[in-house]
Design a protein around this nucleic acid. Structure first.
Lengths: 122, 122
DNA sequence: TTAACACTTGAACGATTATTCATATTTGTA
DNA sequence: TACAAATATGAATAATCGTTCAAGTGTTAA
């Protein structure tokens, strides 16, 4: 049974079984919730937030970003890989130089929602 | 000098100094960027995402959440503390039982923006 | 007042992660 | 061809983080 399975792990009694069942039915798939957490995890680092914010302002090469943030080029490059994998940034090559920019407008919208929350509370 | 400071850390030459300076002027304060990253960090965990999603559906007590997510009540309680500190959830006590709910509507809006990004790309 | 229950909390452990360092790759140039 | 510049990458290290375990509150009920 489903219920018995859960009681193995949970060290307390079900208090509102009806609520639990109702919520369970409306929960998105495990995969969707995982993807969502993975996306926000990418936003959950100061360096990456700074990079995204900078790219929201202007296309920049790796070296520019490193100078702007006062960090090594290697550190920036590692973070850009993560941002690329999350499809948050895209790049174009021009000779030796690689220019990065935001992949879409979603980044700004996600920022906006985050800022609304931060600024509303004292 | 500002410039010399940065070159100490960055192991490459400034390529587009004008771009760097323009972006630097528009960057929000270090504190704002830090707060934003901290907020998204809270969203960057599957357990917390599940809790928030559940609470978006209905007010629930700690035990209910533990049963729903098939986790120990202690693990849930630890995560609820983080969500409380981020002002994402609030609670009310009724005897022994503590009921948690979303602190405001921002959570749903942040979810929505995240989902838009995930669902648009294949 | 004793016991049971709902929940919280602190310490410990294992896993994940950001940065550094050294090295590799690619491209332009002498 | 050899070299320097811009970027990428793999391994190592230190720090952070989620869960577990054990012990602690606080509340209800016997």
């Amino acid at each position: 049974m489903k219920e018995r399975d859960e009681l193995d792990r949970c060290d307390c009694n079900v208090i509102h079984e009806d609520v639990v069942n109702a919520v369970r039915e409306k929960m998105p798939s495990e995969e969707n919730l995982y993807d969502l957490a993975e996306l926000f995890k990418v936003f959950g680092d100061t360096t990456r937030i700074k990079i995204l914010w900078a790219l929201a302002e202007s296309e920049m090469c790796v070296c520019d970003i490193a100078v702007l943030l006062n960090m090594t080029q290697s550190a920036i490059s590692h973070q850009l890989r993560i941002l690329r994998q999350a499809r948050l940034v895209k790049y174009r090559k021009e000779g030796k130089i690689v220019y990065y920019s935001l992949d879409d407008e979603h980044v700004k919208h996600i920022f906006d929602q985050g800022l609304i929350h931060i600024n509303e509370k004292y």
